[in-house]
Amino acid sequence: MDFEPNEEQRAIALAVDNLLAQHAGPARAIELEREGSYDHALAAALTEAGFLGARLSEETGFLEAALVVEAVAKAGGVVSAAAESLVAPGVAGRSLEGPVAIARAGEDAPIRFGDHARTLLLDAGDEARVVILEPDWREPVRSNFMTPLGRIRVPEGAGESLGAGSGSRLRRWWRLALALDCLGALEAALDITVEYVKRRRQFGRAIGSFQAIQHRLAQCAVQVEATRWLCYEAAANGAPEEACAIAAAYATDTAHHVFRETHQLTGAMGYTREHDLHVFSMRLEALRVELGGTAAHRRAITRSRWAS
């Protein structure tokens, strides 16, 4: 047991933060959202540095890949880092050409990166399939949730099967991936709100000095910290089924809680496009309904731990 990053992990975190400071951030996310674009420039920079795809997990480990995914999410990056650096190597054992989207077969709902994806990881029940997408299988979906969405319609039986039982492997890594996407956005949303209540003055004092506000943010901090360790442990241990379901259930429950609290405490300012909060808060709500949402993750915990 050791909860401090080692030298290599610190070096990776520092390098990826430097790169993200140049190429990502909420302002960039807002600009891309206006254009309806994917951040190909950020993806290229991350790939060049070895931070996107299977290389990181192969050379160092899944925990290191998880740290990068978290950092990208915290910087508001519009790239499919979680799918490319965790799910693809975890399920297919290799890099897949990005952007990578993940979807459940038979559903017509919008999916993240659906209009930009080159590759689709498809949860087809017992098996997972890798589908190389044709451009006319995709269509954009207008959305306010600060993450590019699209619908993908693939012909029956398209793509390559990853074998019997690969479906549950996909769901494990998918759950961990979306928990880590939550984690980064949670940290950013909480940081933004803590800074806001320190500066915002009403009644002659910073509103962050009121206990009514302090307790709510402290409660958020407890849940964000717990999310962090649940994610790290699951990643370090190779994404065990129960741990991944727990990370997803806890992270998405926290996502919804933090969404409500941060918007309440930033008042009208938090709803505006000039304030950074919405980049992260809206994504939190998008993440919490993915793959059946918190309720489905909770049921998955129970099936994994106690079903005979």
Partner: peptide, 23 residues
């Protein structure tokens, strides 16, 4: 199933945050 799962997640959260203090 949902309630059991939610409680299980809360137990694991508590375990890891306690471990952080031990660490």
């Amino acid at each position: 199933q949902e309630k059991l799962g939610a409680a299980r997640a809360a137990v694991e959260a508590s375990r890891l945050l306690s471990y952080r203090v031990i660490d």
